[in-house]
Design a binder for these strands. Sequence first.
RNA 1: GGGCGGUUAGCUCAGUGGUAGAGCACUUCGUUCACACCGAAGGGGUCACAGGUUCAAAUCCUGUACCGCCCACCA
Length: 882
Amino acid sequence: MNIEAMPTRYDASSTETKWYTAWEDAGLFQPSDDPTKPKYVITIPPPNITGSLHMGHALCYPLQDMIGRYQRLQGKSVLILPGQDHAGIATQSVVDKQLRKEGTSAAVLGREKFTERVWEWRKESGDTILNQFRALGCAFDWSRSRFTFDDEYVRAVLKVFIDWFDRGLIFKGKRVVNWDPKLKTSVSDIETERQTIKGKLYHLRYPFTDGSGEVVIATTRPETMLADVAVAVHPSDKRYDGLVGKTIRLPLIGREIPLIADLYPDPEFGTGAVKITPAHDANDYQVGVRHSLPMPVILDSEAYIKIDEVIDFADAEGRKRLESYNNLSRNEARNAVVKDLEDGGYLVKIEDHDIPIIISDRSKDIIEPLLSEQWFCDQPKLFGPVIEAVRNDEVRFHPARYKEIFLEGAESAPEWCLSRQLWWGHRIPVYTTVSGKTVAAHSWQEAETKAGEGIVSQDEDVLDTWFSSGLWPFATLGWPEKSADLDRFYPTSTLVTDRNIIKLWVARMLFMGYDLTGQKPFSDVVIYATVMREDGRRMSKSLGTGVDPMTIIETLGADALRWTLLSQTGENQELRYSERKTEDARNFCNKIWNATRFVLMNCTATETLQAPPASDLEKIDQWLLSRLHATEIAVRTAYERYDIQSACQALYRFFWSELCDWYIEISKPRLNDEARREVPQWVLLTALEAFLTMLSPIMPHLTEELYSFLPISGKAAFLMSNAWPELPAEFAQDAVEAEIERTFDVVRALRALRASVDLAAMKTVPAVYFEGDLGGNASIVTSQGWAERLEAGKPEGKFVSATAGGVDLHLPIEGLVDKEKELARLDKEQTKLLDEITKLSLRMENPQFVERAKPEVVERERANLADLNDRLAKNAERRKLL
RNA sequence: GGGCGGUUAGCUCAGUGGUAGAGCACUUCGUUCACACCGAAGGGGUCACAGGUUCAAAUCCUGUACCGCCCACCA
């Protein structure tokens, strides 16, 4: 490397692409073939093919890359397997939206043409996000990339469905589910959002059939009363003593419905009586099941009134009314029903009320709880081994608090609605025979063979996306085939994901893994923080509050962005992003660049250096190596605990403060001296190699570039394939650290003293005097305090003084001392000293403290007090000299 | 309603029993031959509040307030 050619600014963009290509060409993204190496495996959370990079991704994927890079340095054979999720509903609605822009739609095209169209779209732009992971520097094994619609993957999905169907773990049932009337499908909870809107609470009069009075109920959805099948009260509610069992005539319709007792109604709320509409409310549905009530549906799949299931139970007048409501929208029906209730004298009152609604993420339409026939999976049964494994820490969560959160969810898991009324997804492999039997099979032919009779149809629905993603850790490795990869890489090591999908995805992978492979799919689950804006608000594309990571990468670099996010990653549940922080990170990159440039300028010897004999090392060399040793331990233990922010803190402090601010500055005189330069050269190169290696998981590009310049022996082909530093135990020297820190205190005091008399930093003064013991470190004080020489004793003439680290410093003053300024400085010091002395004396005079506190604490405080008193006395003396 | 996390310098955050820390921002000084995306010095905090435990509490316990998230949602 021609050092003169190194610019004084680090250029991230050219460096980053250069090295990414080099690593990939060298095959470094694939696991090592060496069978003796322990393995480390991550299957990344497959992003949706519709996905585009956001700040959450910019944290999640580099975090996995960083863990992988660290494990690789630890000598492991690392596989990080990437891929993508077909993301049924998300993709279908994106493509459908495109079609609508073109004046057509999925419905017009039909199932087959539509699916073809989605495939086309995927080929065009489905890989965008994976390419963005490359820009972030993610060392993923692209040769093993998987898609949940790969042929082998589809086979795995079907096999699981068929096996579980045959074992009775998957079954068809009628339940109230989240229904999206716009997309006309059931949706999972994660695809919905709960909101509260201002609405009305309608109080309605429901008369008894025998004319003996009435029950008043309250509802926010009056239009659903058309499908009411009962009114429920709490059994302990005295107001309804003796009334339960009576029959009510449903207003407008004339249907006769019972007054029943159930634990569901809250006697505190309203009149304590609840109308029961089992087909359109999840709670009502449960009541309906308990009391074997009919469950008529009055809304169609687009949420328009549909009367055929209720019409037969209405009286003549009721039928006429129902006809008038038929095909009205939810809102129209509400208005009509309320008007008719009012006209009929059934409306008691209308109150303002906050009503909870569920919004579909994709369509933004209001979710309708709707009774429909769907496929379900018996999750509660499958959760058994998982609950045990998590409880026993066979699978560990980081941060650990998610363990309890997970267990609570797992223990109360409901049945899992598997079916979606979409076209983009794995079609449910259930076939109906001529005789009406159902059979699950891989194909039409297999179904016929299995059933022993002709098949008339296949189920139209597709599977919930999470069913296929649940197989991710093993289906990507070839399961159910006994493939070499499955044998070699399963179970995987760590799963990194967002806390929002613990139940939806992590839980499914766990029980699918245990049931289907008999092993845990991974050992550790790492939950990372949500990336927020600096003001604490969410980053949201629709609100325009997002920051595009690609723009940041282009202007400030992927390494700077990685540092920004990873250096804020620990056990926190959110972090705040601002571009300013990435500018700081960019500055850190530049500092590393320039410090390395400086070292290279000072290590121009053609042959590489050997470690000097220990006796050649000065205290300051020993100090830096000791700090390096401590930093290595801090960084390694922090990485192991996924406490990335602590690792970053240790690296930052070591590099900027210890290596740059102190060691390099102190070493400059030796580096400029031919005869003495070898030791600091060796120390700098040793520290730099270790530092760059330790930092490389977080800033892979910059560190790789600088490593390539280092004139050291035994270099790895790439820093990425280097080994984690193994530092000799002799590097650790606590006593040297303490001694040097004390010397730095003296230097700081001298600099402050100079500043107090307006002496510019770095402006050399002829002499500084001192009293006390500087050990062998006087030269540090001289050079770092910018003095030509240091002399023992007190100077002649005027001077100002300071005390630190047990040393008195005297700085001669030319001309007059600025008395007022000096007095002010001494006053300030005196106030501070007196304050501390008072506090400390009180403590020392407390016999309880002396008796009960640890002896070393008492001893330390005693010494402190003596020192403070000593400094107070000196302060007084210095006043007299003014 | 239940659970979890948070509240420390102007901002963003470290700090789990022994004299309050970092980065940024701010003030003053400085372009000296690694770096002005830099260096030196400095100002700035009764650690949300109230009790308690302890010789000693930002730190442990109890309660309160506010912010955020999750779960269950009262029709």
